[in-house]
């Protein structure tokens, strides 16, 4: 039972952070595409901006891994 709860918690840890990342990336991505249409030279900055929220899901992964390993 305990293992099941840990597995569910790990899944939530990844799932919720993934949803949060996708919400942030949706907004940044659409704005970024608009900006790229105007200024293609901004591609580097846009990649950075789109990639920044991914840290959320990576941290979620870290927490999940700690739970599963613990």
């Amino acid at each position: 039972m305990e293992n099941a709860i840990i597995a569910v918690a790990a899944a939530f840890s990844i799932g919720i952070t993934a949803i949060a990342t996708s919400i942030a990336q949706r907004a940044i991505g659409s704005a970024g595409v608009g900006a790229l249409a105007e200024k293609p030279e901004l591609v580097g900055s846009i990649i950075i901006l789109v990639a920044i929220p991914e840290t959320l899901v990576i941290l979620g992964f870290a927490v999940a891994a700690i739970m599963l390993m613990g």
Binding site: E54, L59, A62, A65
Partner: peptide
């Protein structure tokens, strides 16, 4: 530290 943790994506 957050930046270092960001490298966890390599494992993920």
């Amino acid at each position: 530290i957050g930046s270092i943790l960001s490298y966890l994506r390599i494992a993920a």
